[in-house]
């Protein structure tokens, strides 16, 4: 397919996924803060997860609830706000609307217009839950519409690739920030943990119920294992990368386990590393460093995908 179109589909999906992640984080945090005394309510971790703290401090200063909510939801100067993400998803979608299905385009368009409409009214705390839930459900709708209304050819695989790489990145960020706040040093691993806070970490990745089914009581090492290394949970980093590799190899036709370009090579290495890791050892050798490195590798894979498929290649005469 057209390189330009493939890139637009890839980014359309990434932005939809990013909007969903931001909405889910806010929704979980809104609920969490209700269980805390007013003076302990912290909104800054949400900014750390987004990675945009410099911009936020410069333009807003103190991380109050209303400032953080506005920054993450409606601020069009913040490229990672829900509204910015939906707008970018829509602009990319518009440029490939003849390739994605009409249903996909219309749902993205309607979602963007809906959130844009909400900027004109203020979202009350009473409506906030419903508002963010709606965006979260939209993420599922978009994924389902892609799976159910688009042929599972090259375009769909680029869409899936974008979504999964974005998802792996967000799960690792949630874990990084929360873990850092909740468990400053490895020695605390065995000590009693804040059940509410750790449940919130899992809920931020829609992982709470599935974790319970698998492990029951909450232990930090288990949470790390579940969010990073689980093979079945669809938001776990390993699970995301396994399916992302399927799509990457479906696009190129290279058998899994071998590689013909850097994107395939880097993704294969990362999967192998995750497949042979164990959570306790990762924590012992420094989880933050590990996650930092993981995010760097995800960025490198994104660059490789760009170079392999999207960049304007020089003319090669036949």
């Amino acid at each position: 397919m057209l390189s330009r179109a493939a890139e637009a589909i890839y980014w359309m999906s990434r932005y939809v996924e990013r909007a969903e992640s931001v909405a889910r984080l806010i929704e979980v945090h809104l609920t969490l803060t209700l269980d805390q005394p007013a003076e302990e309510r912290q909104w800054s971790p949400l900014i750390y997860i987004s990675g945009d703290e410099v911009d936020f401090r410069r333009r807003y200063g103190h991380a109050t609830e209303s400032a953080v909510l506005h920054f993450l939801t409606f601020d069009l100067e913040n490229p990672n706000s829900v509204l910015s993400c939906l707008r970018s998803a829509r602009e990319n979608g518009r440029s490939v609307r003849e390739i994605i299905s009409s249903e996909m385009w219309e749902s993205i368009n309607a979602q963007y217009l809906g959130v844009l409409d909400a900027t004109r009214t203020t979202v009350d705390r009473e409506d906030a839950h419903e508002f963010y839930k709606n965006i979260r459900m939209f993420g599922h709708l978009a994924e389902g519409l892609a799976a159910g209304s688009m042929s599972h050819g090259e375009g769909w695989h680029f869409s899936r690739l974008g979504r999964l790489i974005e998802r792996a990145d967000k799960t690792s960020r949630i874990l990084d920030v929360k873990y850092f706040v909740l468990l400053p040093s490895p020695e605390h691993v065995g000590s009693p943990v804040d059940d509410i806070q750790w449940s919130a970490v899992l809920k931020s990745a829609s992982a709470f119920e599935m974790y319970r089914k698998k492990y029951g009581r909450i232990f930090p090492a288990r949470v790390v294992e579940f969010l990073l290394l689980d093979r079945e949970f669809p938001r776990a980093v390993l699970s995301c990368m396994t399916r992302a590799a399927e799509s990457l190899h479906a696009i190129t036709g290279t058998p899994i386990g071998s590689f013909r370009n850097r994107a395939e090579q880097q993704m294969g290495r990362m999967r192998a590393e995750l497949e042979y890791s164990d959570a306790k050892a990762l924590i012992a050798s420094g989880l933050h460093e590990y996650l930092d490195d993981l995010q760097g590798k995800l960025n490198a894979i994104d660059d490789d995908i760009f170079e392999t498929f999207f960049a304007r290649r020089p003319i090669v005469r036949s």
């Binding site: 397919m1 057209l2 330009r4 090259e154 680029f158 498929f309 290649r313 003319i315 005469r317």
Partner: peptide, 19 residues
């Protein structure tokens, strides 16, 4: 649906840039 930048002429053929 292509834009001008998706097309390129060489070897007496109009080509489009694909993945």
């Amino acid at each position: 649906l292509v834009e001008g930048r998706d097309l390129v002429v060489f070897d007496d053929i109009v080509h489009m840039r694909t993945t």
